[in-house]
Structures are given as C-alpha cells and as structure tokens.
C-alpha cells in the first residue's frame, strides 16, 4: 500500500508561518507595549501635576488619552503572550528596549513634574518601580538565554560523542 502523505510540503508549512515569525510583527508588538505603557504613565503624570482645578472636559480628555495608551499597551501585551513568539534572543532585546524606555520615561517624568513646581519624589518612585520591573525582566531573559546556550553546548557535545 502507498503511504498517504501531507498535501502541503514542509517548506510551504514554514512559509505560511512567516507572518507570525516576522521581525516586523515582533517589533510592532514590543513597540505597542512599551510606548503604550510609557504614554500612559506620562499622560497620567501630566494630569496629576496640572496646577489648579481642571475643567471637566480637560479631565475627561486626560482620562481618555490614558485609557487609549493603556489599551495599546494591553494589545501589545496580548500579542506577545498569544500571537507573536519571542524567542530567547528576542526576549533579551525586548527587555533592553523596555529598560531604556523606562529610564527615559522616568527622567522625563522628573523633569516635567519639577518644572511644574511639584516635588520630585512621586515621579522618582514611579520611575523606580518601572525600572525595577524592566530590569527584572532583563535579568530573567538573560538567565533564560544563558541556560538555553548552556544546554545547547551540552547537547551538541553529546551529539558529537554519539557515533
């Protein structure tokens, strides 16, 4: 009897996975998450440090802008968890981008709040929290990659020893 075989060849299966594996998809998802979070933190800081009572329409505007930024961040996070695979090297790069973005956002927050006459402690605390989270993600990503590289070396050596 002839063996029944898949109707789609392997290279075609890989080609159809292209959109999910593309660098563009990964960059877009990471950018949405980072920019969305940074935007939400920045807009919220501007809102809180506004001198004097704000009209209701302005308050609604700030709230909407923060919500839009959070929605983008949520969408980026969902893409990274469900749709776009981030392999070990990508995770390290994404974590570095997150760390740089959190440091830049923190610096901007401090400058803006001090210029507006508010104390620097609140933005410093928020910035520190953001930076700690980003740094933790970076350490985890580097550890994971190092563990995989170590395992790859062990397995390669084992493969070479096997006749």
């Amino acid at each position: 009897m002839t063996q029944e075989m898949p109707g789609v060849p392997a290279h075609e299966v890989v080609a159809r996975l292209g959109p999910a594996l593309s660098a563009r998809a990964r960059v877009r998802a990471v950018a949405m998450l980072v920019l969305g979070l940074a935007g939400a933190v920045f807009v919220t800081a501007l809102w809180w440090t506004e001198p004097g009572p704000l009209p209701v329409r302005t308050q609604v505007g700030f709230a909407l802008l923060s919500a839009v930024c959070l929605a983008w961040a949520g969408y980026g996070s969902w893409l990274l968890r469900r749709k776009v695979p981030l392999f070990a090297a990508d995770q390290v790069v994404a974590a570095w981008i997150g760390l740089v973005a959190s440091l830049a956002t923190s610096a901007l927050l401090v400058v803006v709040t001090v210029q507006r006459g508010a104390g620097p402690w609140a933005p410093l605390l928020v910035g520190a929290a953001l930076t700690v989270v980003a740094a933790t993600l970076l350490v985890r990503a580097r550890r994971r990659r190092a563990a995989l590289l170590r395992r790859e070396r062990e397995l390669t050596a084992r493969d070479l020893e096997t006749p």
């Binding site: 075989m5 898949p6 392997a10 290279h11 299966v13 890989v14 996975l17 594996l21 392999f87 070990a88 090297a89 990508d90 990659r145 995989l148 590289l149 395992r151 790859e152 397995l155 390669t156 493969d159």
Partner: peptide, 24 residues
C-alpha cells in the same frame, strides 16, 4: 531536544528542520 533548544534560542533554520521532521 537540540533542535528545540536551538529554535528556542531564535535559530530559524533549526525551527525549519523541526517542522520538516515532525510535519508528517
């Protein structure tokens, strides 16, 4: 296992070989 580890590290050719090996 080696193919999977390489694919997890981001090696595209390892991923393609894994797909080819397990497609059938």
């Amino acid at each position: 296992e080696l193919l999977v580890v390489r694919a997890q590290l981001g090696d595209r050719s390892a991923l393609e070989e894994l797909v080819a090996r397990w497609q059938t």
